[in-house]
Design a protein around this nucleic acid. Structure first.
Lengths: 157, 157
DNA sequence: ATACGACTTAAACTAATGTTTAAGTCAAGA
DNA sequence: TCTTGACTTAAACATTAGTTTAAGTCGTAT
């Protein structure tokens, strides 16, 4: 059996966060000893693992509570649980894709500044007599990206 | 010149969010017409693009404001701006990697429920006389993952 | 026996990120 | 001219996700 402190260590969070999760329906399975202290069973680690994953995936506590509630209702909710996870998988996939797009933009901007530093001024990227970036600049970088095996060769100083 | 409403449309957010960003130092470059209305110059879209990217990357408003502040100081901060973006690129990379790990766990759990549904009970994954998941179960899935070209063949119903 | 550390609660507090409300200004079209 | 829609502000409100505080209860090691 694990104490709240043990679980906090396992999850790498504060005990107060665990109590917050409990208050919000994430831990209906937790038992108490006769002094009222929370006691987590070894099998509860299955729940902890899922909660930890969903938290790290950015799922709101309220939504996770719904999934846990399904789990407490036994085998009759297996399909609903599958559907829930299917949905979250889809959302997380899209999220990762969007993050990847932002990462690529950051890499472009690193190259933008790397080349500006080399010339001592950002002006090299602007259209004549303006501070608008030449629309060709991004294309130029993306061509170089395609031609370069390791992106950091292009972006790192 | 763009109005606050134009920019809100471009970013896909509410005008009140733009005003919030302005209050918090993200838009020091914005000008006003004689009625006091915000007027964004075409070149300001460069800033908007960066702000949008950093926001989508999960960077706090306060941190973005620091970067924008560097931008306002001219070419003397080119190196600092590069360093800032280098740092954010690194953070975002790690974030994406962690998300990927969570995605893989969700896929495992989908397979876990898919197989449970087939048998009509979650019990098939438990050790005898317990509700602890057989430690071999995850390994079994990961072997199948390696042997399968498209993960959804394995996880989808 | 008692002190310490880990636990309990309810309630107040914090921080981040906006949204909503109320009251007012202004330009343009009917 | 008058109305409408888009803008302005400050301030209040909302939500999420906790943390902190205050007061109290245990079990154990000295």
């Amino acid at each position: 059996m694990y104490s709240i402190g043990d679980i906090a260590n396992i999850m790498g969070i504060n005990t107060s966060a665990i109590r917050f999760y409990d208050r919000n329906g994430l831990l209906p399975f937790v038992q108490r000893d006769k002094a009222g202290r929370r006691k987590f069973k070894p099998e509860d680690l299955n729940f902890i693992e899922v909660i930890d994953c969903l938290k790290k995936s950015g799922v709101p506590v309220k939504d996770i509570a719904q999934f846990i509630s399904l789990c407490m209702q036994g085998d009759q909710t297996l399909q609903e649980r599958y559907d829930y996870l299917d949905d979250e998988e889809e959302k997380l996939s899209r999220k990762i894709e969007k993050m990847q797009t932002q990462l690529e933009f950051l890499q472009y901007k690193k190259w933008y500044y790397k080349t500006a530093i080399k010339e001592g001024t950002e002006d090299i990227h602007f259209l004549p007599n303006s501070r608008m970036i030449d629309p060709q600049t991004r294309n130029e970088f993306e061509e170089k990206r395609k031609a370069t095996a390791d992106i950091h060769e292009l972006t790192d100083l």
